[in-house]
């Protein structure tokens, strides 16, 4: 691919999938500064990996692999530097949802932030409506194991919601 085309393709991919990048960053980063850093790191890796893109995989599969890999490494590095409760520092949604939904959405983000680095990725992909096959391709685990893990994570989330309601 000519360099000019590569530049153009890169910008198109970033523009078209900026939501994906932001969702991954928001899942793994607690504050705005780290989130912006992470997004830039992801963009760098996308640019570096672009010549190696295998068209046998869907673009989103490829993007999720890169984004989650960078995010987990970034998250691990940052958890050495400082450990913080992610959900507590997440900024509120700018254009707020109706009160009830907003509160539930904040809780969902808080509970996801409590999960470990791999479970965060799994549940995010699931909530993004990815099929178990796609999730298995992104994560590198078997389809049946995705099902097993997902059952456990969903159970955990439901319990957290239930406990919160009771309290």
């Amino acid at each position: 691919m000519a360099k000019h085309n590569l530049h153009q393709t890169f910008h198109e991919i970033i523009e078209q999938h900026k939501g994906l990048l932001f969702k991954v960053a928001r899942t793994y980063c607690g504050n705005e500064e780290d989130r912006q850093d992470l997004i830039q790191e992801i963009r760098i890796q996308i640019w570096k990996s672009l010549p190696k893109y295998d068209a046998n995989f869907a673009m989103t599969t490829w993007l999720y692999r890169i984004s989650i890999n960078v995010a987990i490494s970034f998250y691990r590095k940052n958890s050495i530097r400082r450990q913080y409760a992610i959900a507590e520092t997440l900024p509120p949604v700018i254009d707020p949802l109706p009160n009830d939904l907003q509160e539930k959405f904040n809780l969902l983000e808080k509970f996801i932030a409590e999960l470990n680095e791999m479970d965060k990725a799994l549940i995010m992909l699931y909530l993004e409506d990815k099929s178990y096959l796609e999730i298995s391709e992104i994560m590198g685990i078997s389809v049946s194991y995705v099902g097993t893990k997902m059952g456990r994570i969903k159970e955990k989330l439901k319990k957290r919601f239930l406990n919160h309601k009771e309290n």
């Binding site: 949604v93 700018i94 959405f105 909530l127 989330l157």
Partner: peptide, 19 residues
């Protein structure tokens, strides 16, 4: 859960500027 996630993130995506 999916509805909540997607609705919440939709609002965030709208507020995102292009980098």
């Amino acid at each position: 859960l999916k509805y909540l996630w997607q609705t919440g993130n939709e609002q965030i995506a709208i507020s995102q500027k292009s980098d």
